[in-house]
Computed example of a mutant assay.
Amino acid sequence: MRRMLLAACAVLAAALTVSVPTAAARAEAPAPPPRAAAPELPAPTGKLPVGMAAVHLKDADRADPWVPGQRRELMVSVWYPAAKPSGTRAPYMTADESRTYLEAGAEDLPPQVPRDVLSTVVTHAGVRAAPVRARGGLPLVVLSPGFGMPRATLTGLAEELASRGYAVAAIGHNYEADGISFPDGPTTTCVACAHRDYPKVGAVRAADVSFVLDELTGGRPAWRGGPRLDPGRVAMVGHSAGGFSTVPAMLRDARVRAAVDMDGSFHFPNDTPLDRPLLMLGKPSRVPGGPDRTWDETWTELSGWKRWLTVDGTEHLSFTDLAPLGERLGLPQQRLDGDRADAVTRAYVTAFVDTHLRGRDAPLLAGPSARFPEVRFHRP
């Protein structure tokens, strides 16, 4: 996953860099083209403006599972519907997060590429905007990114859901990503990447989700001025490792009422029945009887509402921001147009949470749709 993102960063750096010619070259050559604009995420399609806050959480009761000499700490990005737009756009990543992430794969990155290049991506949320008032609290969607991937790679989906009235909390699972900046300490790296202990990753993330829910939906807000949340309406959506972590999270915590796995193989034991809704959304090879039998095994243990969908023309990263960003950088991540892949993800995840957190009828989940012919339903 990192190699594909690094290639995209190289293209971005080339687009944003303007060389300084010599005096002779200036006399002979035409003026250089204007500096290219930074890539922008697709705008959310909901009616509400979006606010965003980065929240630092400390679990004094738990040792960090990857660095046992420390207590568990998390950075969480929270998006929410705002009463009015903020004048300051939220950063995609901090410069330190971008630098740390890119340095982790420096052998694949040309030396002229600025290491803070990912901090230039344009978002659509305002920092610390005042939240809307919601009677009973906002429904909450927890996001968990892929293994080694920054939580920022799910920003587009978060902004979409927030513009439609959801609070969204993307968890930066400490030491499971290269590039998590804390306000009072260094930017951390992916210690867990050296182990590849996926069942442990699932168990750790399940504990992280429970802790985040305690902090965000408890008697006090996690930060002053934050939106009120409804602890009875919580869903989890994850990509890759975050996707397979939805099962242990639901088995551990009854507050997670429904979940979406976006192209994650299930590395957690699949022999425990689960009666809550689960949407499995993946690339074309994740078909029944395909190379990843963990989807078949998990499917048989789902006794509640369930759907198994694949999207033609997609790859593993197509369910993240890298689909539209790769398209803008001239480095598509899949055969399907990047903006189209992004639109599919937003539409089906939104339909899912609307159904299970708001009780709304979502015909999109009933079967194949003429609006999205690339989406295939499987019923093994």
Rank of each mutant, 00 (worst) to 15 (best):
R3G: 04
L12M: 12
A15C: 02
T17Q: 11
V18Y: 13
V20L: 10
T22A: 13
A23I: 13
A27R: 13
A31I: 06
A37F: 08
A37Q: 08
G46M: 04
P49R: 10
G51L: 00
M52T: 03
H56L: 01
D59A: 05
P65Y: 14
Q70I: 08
E73H: 10
P81A: 07
G87M: 13
G87D: 13
P91C: 14
T94W: 02
A95V: 13
L102M: 13
E103C: 07
P111G: 09
V113Q: 02
T123I: 09
H124W: 08
A125Y: 07
A130S: 07
R133N: 08
G136A: 05
L138Q: 06
V141C: 03
P145E: 15
M149S: 15
P150V: 14
L154E: 10
A158Y: 02
R164L: 04
Y175H: 12
D184P: 01
G185H: 12
C190T: 06
A194F: 13
K200E: 02
G202D: 11
R205A: 08
R205M: 06
A207Q: 15
V209S: 07
L216Y: 01
T217D: 01
R224M: 03
L229V: 01
L229M: 05
P231Y: 00
G243Q: 11
T246Q: 15
V247D: 09
M250A: 08
L251K: 08
R252Y: 12
T272Y: 10
T272M: 01
D275I: 06
L279R: 03
R286P: 00
G289V: 05
P291S: 11
P291H: 11
R293N: 09
R307P: 03
R307Q: 11
W308H: 04
V311N: 05
G313S: 06
G326W: 05
L329R: 09
G330D: 02
L331H: 13
P332S: 11
V344Y: 04
A351K: 09
F352I: 02
A362M: 08
V375A: 08
R379F: 01
